[in-house]
């Protein structure tokens, strides 16, 4: 199973680009898509999900151009958009049946599968209540349930952990790991911790372009020996930020402990082991 994205661009009026000459080849496993807000992640995912079409370029799934044959993708797609909604007057069973019908699936196994999903996502207690009465987290779980209705071969999650509490996030990651055994999972987020524990491959985007792509070790290697920690006075922070890329700060005995990225560390600075978040901040600040 291969998803090839070749030189796609999305141009808006006024010569602005949401995506510019973007290429990537994705194989089975989990791809973590990282980027600041406005990087073009959602636009890319909507193109893969056949909702938007690029101005230029092609997208092929197993050598089939999905821009010409969108239904080839749709038959094997599971998509959880960032800001999806529900019909408030339907209950969970009715809504999932509707989603199943939209996807072109059914049969005698549909009802047991919906029940299994609702049980697995712990929504079975509320299955007959109207969706309008659900909390944000419960709606998010209904979204996840509809993704899993059709045993998808391509799964796209756009900022899936929004609305989930920390405990739910951990469980969600486990579910994705389970899911990725047999299909392509693309997971977008601007929260690095959502990605670094589960993604096989990581792509970092900024301003509609791909600025880095590879496995986590490859990306982290870019800033090997560049991450340091030091202590500074509070009022020196602004000046410090002008000179270095600051990853994080924390209070320590009335001073600030600063984790930062630099080629020229202070003498008192302590070298730290680099991680994906350091690499992400380094790449998005230097491109």
């Amino acid at each position: 199973m291969t998803l090839e994205i070749q030189n796609i661009s999305k141009k808006y009026r006024g010569n602005s680009y949401a995506l510019k000459d973007f290429s990537i080849t994705i194989e089975k496993g989990i791809l973590g898509l990282l980027g600041p807000n406005g990087a073009g992640k959602s636009t890319l995912l909507k193109m893969i999900a056949t909702i938007h079409k690029p101005t230029n370029g092609i997208i092929c799934l197993n050598k089939n151009n999905i821009l010409k044959d969108a239904n080839y993708m749709r038959k094997q797609l599971g998509f959880l958009p960032q800001d999806f909604g529900v019909y408030p007057n339907l209950n969970a069973y009715e809504f999932l049946n509707y989603m199943a019908a939209m996807k072109g699936i059914g049969g005698s196994n549909l009802k047991p599968r919906i029940t299994q999903l609702l049980e697995g996502l712990n929504l079975i207690h509320a299955a007959h209540k109207p969706l309008g009465s659900y909390s944000g987290g419960m709606k998010q779980r209904i979204g996840i349930a509809q993704v899993l209705l059709n045993s998808p071969k391509i799964v796209i999650f756009d900022e899936p952990t929004v609305g989930l509490d920390p405990e739910e996030r951990v469980r969600f990651r486990n579910l994705i790991s389970d899911l990725a055994n047999d299909c392509i999972v693309i997971l977008s987020s601007h929260i690095v911790s959502d990605i670094d524990t589960i993604a096989d491959q990581v792509a970092i985007m900024k301003n509609g372009s791909l600025i880095s792509y590879g496995d986590q070790e490859q990306i982290i290697h870019i800033i090997k020996d560049k991450v340091f920690e030091t202590t500074i006075e509070k009022d020196a922070l602004l000046e410090f930020k002008h000179q270095h890329i600051v990853v994080s700060t924390s209070q320590k005995n009335g001073k600030l402990s600063v984790r930062y990225i630099t080629d020229h560390p202070q003498e008192s600075a302590i070298k730290k082991e680099a991680n994906l978040e350091d690499a992400y901040l380094y790449l998005t600040n230097t491109h």
Binding site: I105, N109, G120, N122, S151, R171, F172, D178
Partner: peptide, 22 residues
């Protein structure tokens, strides 16, 4: 009980397989 997001019972490989219905 409701708060628990994904219980141990969800096993994607063991779920009922749905068929095509257009």
């Amino acid at each position: 009980e409701e708060k628990q997001f994904i219980s141990n019972t969800i096993q994607l490989m063991n779920m009922s397989i749905v068929s095509t219905n257009y």
